[in-house]
């Protein structure tokens, strides 16, 4: 594989520009926050981050912010992530392996349906029962 130069990287970005959401960061509507504390890293949060990136690319989702944070306090169910999306409650998911990450992108971010078996915090039980509706 030939080394890419910064100019080539810039050209690639310009190529993607038509797909890029040009709004300011504050206007982005969907956000995935990944817990990258020592506990998260030890449980494979880096692989989870990679899986999110791959699936967002596969689903052509350009308006999703991916940010990292430290420990969310749920070390026993790492990797943990929080998903913030319009018309959905904020949800903290636990045990988010790469496969679960891909399911969350498809179900929660695309189809607006929560992945109930991995919810560990935030929505009340009755909301979980209704699949987040």
């Amino acid at each position: 594989m030939a080394k890419m130069t910064l100019e080539e990287l810039r050209a690639l970005r310009d190529e993607k520009k038509k797909d890029l959401n040009k709004r300011d960061v504050a206007d982005k509507t969907k956000q995935v926050v990944i817990g990258m504390g020592t506990c998260g890293i030890a449980a494979g949060a880096k692989d989870t981050l990679n899986a999110f990136l791959q699936e967002l690319d596969a689903q052509h989702l350009t308006d999703v912010l991916i940010t990292q944070t430290g420990c969310m306090g749920l070390c026993y169910v790492e990797p943990t992530i929080e998903v913030i999306a319009p018309e959905m409650p904020n949800v903290i998911y636990g045990k988010v392996t790469p496969d679960v990450a891909k399911t969350i992108v498809r179900d929660h971010l695309v189809n607006k349906k929560m992945v109930s078996e991995h919810i560990f915090d935030r929505p009340a039980a009755d909301i979980i029962d209704r699949g987040g509706k």
Partner: peptide, 21 residues
């Protein structure tokens, strides 16, 4: 080069760039 490193698009490009290095 990429703008803020926080959208899926910019992070995927970043990853691709680092992989090539």
């Amino acid at each position: 080069t990429l703008g803020e490193l926080e959208t899926g698009v910019s992070l995927n490009l970043l990853r691709r760039y680092i992989a090539s290095q």
